[in-house]
């Protein structure tokens, strides 16, 4: 057949379609990924309110501070599981069939990540709904929410692509989950997700400067503030975007490593 093979964009669309369909056929799984952040938000909100008298916060303003943080934490934690779908494809012959076809490798990666990002989107909206029900209020306008949604999706896509890469390199469910938990906990705590930098130890603040999850939290909080420092929002979102594109490219190269080992 002389049909021209579609390129990256078209293949991304097809692959996204495949994963979206699979995702929404498992409503129980979606429900679980929504319940989890809700529990975190209420649990951490209560916990930190109870055990520490956090300077500079009233009860409701801590929830307002915590909500964008939990959004990023949720995006990060969920993305760690991303590679399990690749492992399932490898355990069947799906991955091998795909890789022996002219499908764009970038499309194979991007399609799955975009479909995951829709879960992040729903999670973000839900966490905000719960946060607001618990008393969180934001002075910023619609732009603030859009930035928050955008950066949370970038966190999900960036770390999701790393999870996919680990899946391609280890080809093992246990190894993948082990590695992603090993990475995601420090990333969560070495950041301003739960604690304001002014009360955190100095070294945590230094580490946070190199933490993409923290960039996302800062960009979101700034954008949601009454008088946002847009240059900070732009700088931190820009860094996050660059990070996401870089790891996305790097992870796509992992297909080659996988093929070398089969």
């Amino acid at each position: 057949m002389s049909t021209a093979i579609p390129g990256f964009t078209t293949h991304t669309r097809f692959i996204t379609g495949r994963w979206l369909r699979a995702q929404y056929r498992q409503p129980a799984l979606i429900a679980f990924t929504l319940v989890q952040p809700a529990i975190w938000l209420l649990l951490f909100g209560q916990l930190f309110k109870g055990v520490v008298n956090i300077p500079g916060f009233s009860d409701s303003s801590y929830i307002a501070f915590l909500t964008p943080g939990i959004v990023m934490m949720t995006a990060l934690m969920t993305s760690g599981w991303s590679g399990t779908t690749f492992i399932a494809d490898m355990e069947r012959g799906v991955m091998d069939r795909m890789l022996a076809s002219p499908v764009s490798r970038g499309g194979l990666m991007a399609g799955q990540l975009i479909s995951n990002a829709t879960t992040t989107l729903i999670q973000t909206i839900l966490v905000f709904a719960i946060g607001m029900a618990a008393g969180a209020r934001y002075d910023g306008g619609a732009a603030g929410y859009l930035v928050t949604i955008g950066v949370s999706m970038l966190v999900g896509i960036g770390f999701g692509s790393l999870s996919n890469a680990v899946a391609l390199l280890t080809r093992q469910q246990e190894a993948l989950i082990g590695i992603s938990q090993f990475v995601s906990l420090p990333l969560t705590f070495m950041s301003s997700i739960m604690i304001d930098p002014s009360v955190a130890p100095h070294w945590v603040n230094v580490a946070a400067r190199f933490n993409p999850v923290d960039w996302a939290a800062i960009a979101a909080r700034q954008a949601l503030a009454a008088d946002p420092d847009w240059s900070s929002v732009l700088r931190h979102s820009g860094l996050l975007l660059a990070f996401t594109l870089f790891v996305g490219w790097l992870s796509t190269r992992a297909f080659r490593t996988y093929q070398r080992s089969v």
């Binding site: 093979i5 495949r18 369909r21 699979a22 056929r25 498992q26 355990e91 069947r92 012959g93 799906v94 091998d96 069939r97 022996a100 076809s101 002219p102």
Partner: peptide, 18 residues
């Protein structure tokens, strides 16, 4: 080559969810 071939791997190669 990829355009000219069909590949049926040893393990089932369909997506079970679809």
């Amino acid at each position: 080559v990829r355009h000219a071939i069909g590949f049926v791997p040893q393990k089932s190669s369909s997506d079970p969810m679809a």
